[in-house]
């Protein structure tokens, strides 16, 4: 593969289920290596996005590529090189973990001997070495999550997609699972996508995030950039037309955007930006109501973007 070619690339894909727009106009590009958090509240369209990427459902609109292959036509080839851990339980309860993982390995085309050896290996790796001969129906929730991870790893995929890998796990189990994910991410040629609505999990393991809400992309970028960028930002509330002010900022080369009823000005590392902002405001004869720094956790970023989205939706609905 070409160095740094994106592993996942979508261009304005949408997926409708009847009247429900599960994914809307999603454009993302995810480079090779590292862990990406796909973040969003319930019903945001995360799972649907994954199904689109795996070629399990066809997009209603738009184009996409995974590992350089078209998601509309190359589903089988994509799934050959991707490991997928579904969000819900999917087990054959009356067989043991080794048989289960081995069976699924064979469904990837692995020989009996390879699948068996690899099943033992991955079950040990996820911490189920002792229980690998137990029937899956006797497993605890946390153990079941581990089996699901094991089956996703059995064929050693290049891209690993994990849908809510920590649901139902106790705090210790969660940390274990996240550490496993971090450990897998150490393999340089592997890319991990982790779906979650638990911000702490994403903050712990991901180096990039894609935030979705109501099927739409809200933000994307490196975690550091997003959080740091926000740390360096300034929040303004003014009396008058905020959009007009944003236009003026942008004309001066200052990036800014509307958030709720406030303006978010991205300052970067430029200390003189505050002065410039003040100058522009004075010029525009805008009255300042609030001037300050936003708090800077991912949660805050998440909540602010989501609530902004919701506000916009409500406004649209009321028109």
């Amino acid at each position: 593969m070409v160095e740094n070619a994106p592993v996942i690339e979508t261009f304005r894909i949408s997926k409708n289920y009847g009247l429900v727009e599960a994914v809307k106009d999603l454009t993302v590009s995810i480079p090779q290596g590292g862990t990406v958090g796909l973040l969003g509240p319930n019903g945001a369209g995360k799972s649907t996005t994954i199904k689109l990427l795996l070629g399990l459902v066809n997009p209603s609109l738009g184009e996409g590529k995974v590992l350089g292959m078209d998601i509309r036509t190359k589903g089988l080839e994509i799934r050959d090189r991707v490991g997928y851990m579904p969000e819900h339980d999917c087990f054959i309860g009356d067989i043991d973990a080794v048989k289960y993982v081995m069976h699924l390995g064979r469904m990837n085309g692995m020989s009996v001997a390879d699948a068996l050896r690899r099943a033992h290996e991955v079950l040990y790796y996820v911490g189920l070495g002792e229980s690998r001969y137990r029937k899956i129906e006797t497993f605890s929730l946390g153990m079941k999550q581990r089996v699901k991870l094991a089956q996703a790893l059995v064929h050693d995929p290049e891209l690993l997609i994990l849908d809510e890998p920590t649901t139902g796990m106790d705090p210790d189990g969660r940390i274990d699972m996240l550490e496993l994910i971090k450990d897998i991410a150490k393999c340089e040629d592997k890319t991990l996508v982790m779906c979650s609505h638990i911000l702490a999990d994403v903050e712990r393991v991901c180096d990039r995030v894609v935030i979705m809400n109501r099927g739409k992309l809200v933000r994307t970028g490196s975690l550091k950039e997003l959080v740091e960028g926000k740390k360096e930002a300034i929040i303004l509330r003014v009396k008058g037309d905020s959009n007009l002010l944003i236009d003026k900022f942008e004309r001066e080369g200052i990036s800014a955007e509307l958030r709720d009823d406030a303006i978010l000005v991205f300052a970067g590392n430029n200390p003189s930006i505050k002065k410039k902002v003040m100058e522009i405001m004075a010029e525009a004869k805008m009255q300042l109501r609030y001037f300050g720094k936003p708090t800077a956790s991912l949660e805050d970023l998440f909540l602010s973007t989501i609530s902004y989205e919701e506000e916009a939706e409500r406004e649209k609905a009321s028109i």
């Binding site: 040990y124 790796y125 911490g127 274990d176």
Partner: peptide
Amino acid sequence: MSIESLGYKEWEGQKH
């Protein structure tokens, strides 16, 4: 057996 001590192993082989 601790997870760290084992580490993730890659697999290479023929797929049918």
